[in-house]
């Protein structure tokens, strides 16, 4: 993983680097946490506790490994603890099916998500707008067409254009990495 290197901490964590870590990883950690704990507040509590713990242990933490891996592993463990604690209250409370989600697969899929983000950003203006309205705001083709004053056919063409461009940009990743990822995530 080429990107891993920059995530090793060269020195101690200070408030600035701590905030940068939080900003960089919070959304992905939240999404990861919610795979185990669907309730947003529960998921957030886990992510927060991981960051608070990181801050409190910043002087003693072994920073020779990847911080990214540390964060995801911690969230993973704490989520499992939370699920286990809840079972004390009720046997039927939390399904266990999610507990085998693999941290490594998650880390690797983050690499791909970054690439996908870059690919989306590189789409032509109109094409990107339509693609984001559909995927990020959840609008149907007809709703997008109405909002933008276009025909449904045009929306359809732009959607297919977006996918085509992204596939070209991601060709390298799609052939090399992906089969590992989706074995882990599915």
């Amino acid at each position: 993983m080429t990107r891993e290197k920059e995530l090793h901490t060269a020195g101690k964590i200070d408030k600035t680097s701590f905030e940068a870590l939080f900003r960089k990883f919070f959304p992905a950690l939240m999404a990861f946490s919610r795979k185990f704990l669907p309730d947003e507040d529960d998921a957030r509590e886990v992510v927060h506790s991981v960051f608070i713990n990181l801050w409190e242990r910043r002087d003693t933490l072994d920073t020779s490994g990847s911080l990214k891996s540390y964060l995801f592993t911690s969230v993973h463990n704490r989520c499992l603890n939370t699920i286990r604690d809840r079972k004390k209250f009720s046997d039927a409370e939390v399904p266990e099916s999610e507990s085998d989600i693999d941290v490594q697969a998650q880390l690797e899929s983050m690499e791909l998500e970054e690439k996908i983000g870059e690919a989306i950003a590189s789409l032509p203006e109109k094409c990107r707008e339509i693609f984001e309205m559909n995927r990020f705001q959840g609008l149907k083709y007809a709703e997008i067409a109405e909002k933008l004053g276009l025909s449904v056919k045009t929306v359809e063409n732009q959607m297919s254009k977006a996918l085509k461009i992204m596939r070209e940009k991601l060709a390298h990743y799609l052939t090399i990495v992906i089969w590992i990822l989706w074995n882990g995530l599915n």
Partner: peptide, 19 residues
């Protein structure tokens, strides 16, 4: 395409947070 699509959906799950 569906692999890209899944990746996009995962990104979309993360896009709702105001950092």
């Amino acid at each position: 395409y569906s692999k890209i699509w899944k990746g996009v959906d995962q990104l979309a799950e993360q896009s709702g947070y105001n950092v």
